[in-house]
Design a protein around this nucleic acid. Structure first.
Length: 494
RNA sequence: GGCCCGGUGGUCAAGCGGCUAAGACACCGCCCUUUCACGGCGGUAACACGGGUUCGAUUCCCGUCCGGGUCACCA
């Protein structure tokens, strides 16, 4: 064995700082649980001024998806999760794509074989599993094959895998930052495959090798990997390597029984963005799904990414699964939307407004502030502003409003009073319209609603609108507003 | 089924031996108001169950029940 090569690999490992990694498989789809893992991983690194690494785990050749890494880059960038080392920018422990590290895994696996912690196995793919749950180590003839014999068969080109040789008897204790210490009997652990017959490593093996070789100090991953974790310890021990801090996170659920999944039609990050959610809102909400700030921040729930990096602590991660609640996400999103400056909101809303309101004279900048406090997502804009282009058909019953004390008769009367007042207006400004309408109500000694409700109804044909009578008059413009009021009068039989 | 893990309102959750058991979403009511929102105020609602340990358990231990994960040459 060329030990110099191993020494060189070791020598490249950066030391002394926190180093974390997000290691997705390129599936072309960033689901919420994955995003949360990325978030926690990034947060741990940034909290300690450490290094965040992106690594692509593409060892499953059958599941490769074209353009999938682009989705990962794009999502991470949109969310503000900047990486310091990765496939696209390189780094001290490159390469960052597992298929490009192929020989490395093979060499380490062979080292393990030499040391007696792994063995070549020539058996067919696993056919039938034992029911007992505990393994009879002597059952596999390959396990006890002599090294010479095994090597001879390998040299002869016999297809094979390399398996981990789990010690017979005894226990292994694994330590997790959120679940604590977990001890299992070695006899419940199987001699898992390390190197597949295609020469590529399994996920479990590649993880251990890469995390060590990349100097990873904290590993964040889903709790579905918890039960394979003790086998990692054995691997680290066999190599004589230091075990990183493991942080297993319970899944993000769609309901009490099922994880969020593409199969069930649950939204991915991309889907949420398409549904009009803001990246920052998603990031904020998802971080809080399974983690909560402690101490002085325990009552707070709105945080920017930078603030999260400040307060994030591993101890706040929850052990139990969390159900994804789109209603609460909507609340977060609505809050983020409302707190945007009018300019920023307009920038985001403009494409949606432009799509919904096509009448040339209408100033979309006037509509934006009306819808800003009235939408949870950007998709809520269009249905609210449809009446600007064309007055919908509406029933006269719309004129009847108990609280406003309006009915068809007094609405007709109100509109008839309003028409000449507005016709006589020299300035078609918000203030002028406002003063005219309020003035009319005062003059007639009526409550404002008696005038405003009929006008708003005539202008929109809807029971609910963003903005009231004055705003709508202003935005529609003199001609259209007066025309709609006349239409209202006619429809009411006047 | 074996092994591992979890269990505070409908949901997210604080709590880490002593509290009238926080807060948020949702829901309900009131206020504000030219509709609806926004905003403000208030309300309904929880420690899965049974044993211990203790002067005292939501908190520690055991069991039961319920739920999740895992038992692949997928990750």
């Amino acid at each position: 064995m060329d030990m110099k090569w191993f020494d060189d690999m070791e020598a490249r490992i950066p030391k002394g700082k926190v180093r974390t990694r997000f290691a997705p498989s390129p599936t072309g789809y960033m689901h919420i649980g994955n995003l949360r893992t990325a978030l926690y991983t990034w947060l741990i690194a940034r909290h300690q001024d450490g290094t965040f690494i992106l690594r692509i785990e593409d060892t499953d050749q059958e599941r490769l998806v074209e353009g999938a890494t682009e989705v990962i880059y794009k999502t991470l960038r949109e969310c503000g999760l900047t990486w310091d080392e990765g496939p696209d920018i390189g780094g001290p422990v490159a390469p960052y794509i597992q298929t490009e590290r192929r020989d490395t895994y093979g060499r380490y696996a062979e080292l393990l074989v030499e040391r007696g912690h792994a063995y070549y196995c020539f058996c067919e793919k696993t056919e039938s599993e034992e029911e007992s749950g505990s393994f009879d180590r002597s059952a596999d003839p390959c396990r006890s094959l002599s090294l010479e014999e095994a090597k001879a068969r390998v040299a002869a080109g016999v297809p094979h895998v390399i398996r981990q040789k789990i010690p017979a008897g005894g226990t292994t204790t694994f330590s997790d930052a959120v679940f604590g210490d977990i001890t299992v009997d070695n006899d419940t652990l199987d001699d898992q495959v390390l190197i597949k017959s295609d020469g590529l490593p399994t996920y479990n093996f590649a993880n251990v090798i890469d995390d060590h070789l990349m100097g990873i100090t904290h590993v964040v991953r889903g709790s579905e990997y918890l039960s394979s974790a003790p086998k990692y310890n054995l691997l680290y021990q066999a190599f004589g390597w230091e075990v990183p801090t493991y942080i297993h996170c319970s899944p993000v659920m769609r309901d009490a029984h099922n994880k969020m999944s593409k199969r069930h039609g649950d939204p991915s990050y991309q889907d949420l963005i398409a549904q009009g959610f803001l990246s920052q809102a998603v990031v904020n909400y998802v971080t809080l799904l399974g983690w909560s700030p402690r101490g002085e921040y325990s009552e707070r729930e709105f945080f920017s990414l930078e603030e999260l990096a400040q307060v994030f602590d591993i101890g706040g991660i929850s052990k139990s699964p969390a159900i994804f609640d789109i209603e609460k996400l909507r609340y977060f999103n609505a809050k983020y939307l409302r707190e945007l400056s009018p300019e920023d909101f307009y920038a985001l809303a403009e494409p949606y407004l432009r799509e919904a309101v096509k009448t040339p004279g209408i100033d979309l900048k006037l509509i934006a502030p009306l819808v800003q406090p009235r939408c949870d997502t950007l998709l809520d804009i269009a249905p609210q502003v449809d009446f600007f282009d064309a007055l919908p058909e509406y029933s006269n019953e719309l004129y009847c409003h108990k609280k406003m004390k309006t009915n068809e008769e007094n609405s007709l009367e109100a509109l008839k009073q309003v028409l000449p007042v507005l016709e006589g207006l020299s300035d078609w400004t918000y203030d002028a319209i406002h003063d005219a309408l309020i003035g009319l109500a005062e003059k007639l000694e009526l409550k404002n609603g008696r005038i405003m409700w009929p006008v708003r109804t005539a202008l929109s044909g809807k029971a609910v609108t963003p903005g009231g009578a004055v705003e709508l008059c202003h935005i529609l413009g003199r001609d259209e507003a007066l025309s709609r009021i006349r239409k209202g009068i006619a429809q009411l039989g006047g």
